[in-house]
Amino acid sequence: MPLIIKDEYPEKLFRDDGKRLDGRDKDELRPIKMEVGVLENADGSAYLEWGNNKIYAAVYGPREVHPHHLAKPDRGILRVFYRMATFSVFERKRPAPGRREKEISMVISDCLKPVLFLELYPGTAFEVYINVLDADGGTRCACITVAALALADAGVPMRSLVTAVAVGKIDGELITDLSGIEDKAGEADLPCAITWFNEELSLLQFDGETDLEEFSKCLGLAKNAFSKIYEIQLDALKKKYIEIQEEYSRGEKK
């Protein structure tokens, strides 16, 4: 007997004390944890916990392209494979890649391309494998963030890191970093990503309804969130090496 659970959203997305359902303020991010170099056999890898999202990213390359007809004679290509685990969402997700996953793969690839020097590696591919083990809203933003980290960890020359976050509107209020339920029941959802070398938006998607004034306010919220997440990214990248440096310098003092 299959278990049937209707999608029921709460009527109000704010609690009586003015906070969100998970107890956050309007412009508060979910707790974020990042780590690089987690997979031994990949050229570069990273792991991200963003609220309830748990995501692994692995980077390989530059290497030969298979199937060969995808290779470009004048530049390298960036292939992104965004996949969700069957157990990552409430109802079992069919493991075959669907339309949504293919689209998000393309979106992430287009978002990361401006920071790479693909023209230096003709006929090759950089491959980014992203696996979402646990999903709770904003996975495409989390994936961009973690993929940029994994690329940096692989030693791929990059102009800068990329950071992404979703902003939106629920119950008439503008908020930062939508969770799964806010994404579904809210009014608007605006995932965006920034490339830091020119501080330009590299991803801007929009779903829902706002007026123009609110839209630009949303981007302002995103800008604040970007710099917070960027700090965590930098820390995660440097931590691996600084720990070893410190361990050694402590030994010297003794």
Partner: peptide, 9 residues
């Protein structure tokens, strides 16, 4: 130097 830098810094 022992300054660790990351892409974009």
């Amino acid at each position: 130097s022992r300054d660790l830098v990351v892409p974009g810094e």
